[in-house]
Amino acid sequence: AAGSSDDRALLSVASLFPGPACPATAEHGPSAAASARMRIVHQHGPCSPLADAHGKRPAHDEILAADQNRVESIQRRVSATTGRGKLTKRAAPVQPAPKKSPGHSASSSTPSLPATSGRALSTGNYVVTVGLGTPASKYTVVFDTGSDTTWVQCRPCVVKCYRQKEPLFDPAKSSTYANVSCSDPACDDLDSNGCTGGHCLYAVQYGDGSYTVGFFAQDTLTIAHDAIKGFRFGCGEKNSGLFGKTAGLMGLGRGKTSLTVQAYDKYGGAFAYCLPASSSGTGYLDFGPGSAGNNARLTPMLADKGPTFYYVGMTGIRVGGQQVPIAESVFSTAGTLVDSGTVITRLPATAYTALSKAFATGMSASGYKTAPAYSILDTCYDFTGLSDVSLPTVSLVFQGGACLDVDVSGIVYAISQAQVCLAFASNGDDES
C-alpha cells in the first residue's frame, strides 16, 4: 500500500479504509528466540474472534473521546505516583459486596474495596486469545501494557456482567482453579484488595467509570502452547463498562500482578508485539527474550520513573527527514511512556505545535487541501479524488539514538477520505 523515502512516504488512500473481510494472510511465524506467539487482531476488525457481521463498530468520535479519557487517566496516575503534573489522584471507592456463591466460602462481613481510580481503558484496543483453566477454555481479552492485573468475567457472576461473546469462565469446571487466600502475600500485590471469608478480593476501576471486582484467584493460563501454572488473575463477579465483547483484560505492565512479572522465570520479563497496519490485518504478541528480532533499535527503559508504565526518554522528532526545532528539555520535563492502548500519540504542547507546523508545511508544499479539525485532531486534509498521497515522514527519536520511523499507516488517522488527520495530539501544556 505504500512506499517511502527518507523525507516522503507514499500512502494509498484506499488502504486507510480496509474492507469488511479478513484477508487470507500468512501467519507470522515465531521468531527464533521467542517462546510463545499469539495472534493479535483489532477488537473491532474483521479478523477478530469477537467480530459480528451485524455488530456496530464504535464511531470515530467515540474512539477519540475514549482515547482522551485513557490519556487523562494515565496522566492522573503518573501525577499521583511521581508527583509530576498538574492533575491529582481522585478517590473513587467501589463497593463490590460479593455475595455467597457456589464454590466460594461465605462471609458475614461486607467487604469494601478502596479502588484506585485512574486505570486507563480505551475502545481502540487490540485483543489476543488465551486459554484458562483445566481443561483450558478460550477467552479473547484486551492486552494492555498500561495496567497490571489480568482478569476475566466469572461465573456465577454474583452481581453483574456485561455481555461477552464467549461463555463466561466457570471456576467450577476447572480442576486447577483456586481462590487466593487473604493471608497469601500475593493478595498484598494488588493495588486494591479486600477479604471475604478468607478469600482475597481485587478491584480495578478505570478512568471512564468502568470497573471489575471479584475474587483474586489462580489457575493455569495457556498462551500459545505454553502453560503457566498458578497464574494469578481476577475472577470478576461485578463487571461493568466499555469492554466491548471481550472476556476481560491481560495486564502487561511492570507491576507484581502482571503477566510479565508473574512469568518472569519463564520468559525473562520480555515480550514484544506487532500491531498490524490496518484493522483488517493480524499482528502478534510474543513472550520470551529476543522476540522482537535482531533489528530492534533499543532505548533504556526508565524504570525509576514510576510503577506500571513503560517510561522511555524521547529526545526529538524529525519530519520529512529534518529535525524539528524542539528543545530536548521539553521532552525531559514531561517524560514519555509507550502504551499499547492509547490510540493517538500525545506530545507536550510545544513539541506538538512544532510537529504539526512542520507537517503542515510539508503538506502545503505538495498542494494538499486542508480539512476541518476533528475532535482532538487539528491538522487535517481532504484527499477526495486522490488515490495516492505523499506524506512527510515522521520519526520519533529516543535516548541512545533509537528511532521510530513511523510507518505510513501510522502517520495519519482517517475519519473519511475528505478528513484525514495527522495522528498526533497535544497534551495542552508542557507539564502534564
Binding site: 482515547d67 503518573v78 508485539y273 500491531l275 528480532g293 490510540v343 533509537a402
Partner: peptide
C-alpha cells in the same frame, strides 16, 4: 507525560525487556 500511542507503533515489533531494562522498536515486523 508524552505517550507513544498504538497508531504510531503499527508494523513495528515493540519490545519490552524488564531484565535488560530496554524498550525496542523493530521496523517491518508485521
Amino acid at each position: 507525560v508524552a505517550i507513544v500511542g498504538n497508531t504510531q507503533q503499527k508494523t513495528y515489533g515493540v519490545l519490552y525487556d524488564l531484565g535488560r531494562k530496554t524498550v525496542g522498536f523493530a521496523p517491518g515486523s508485521c
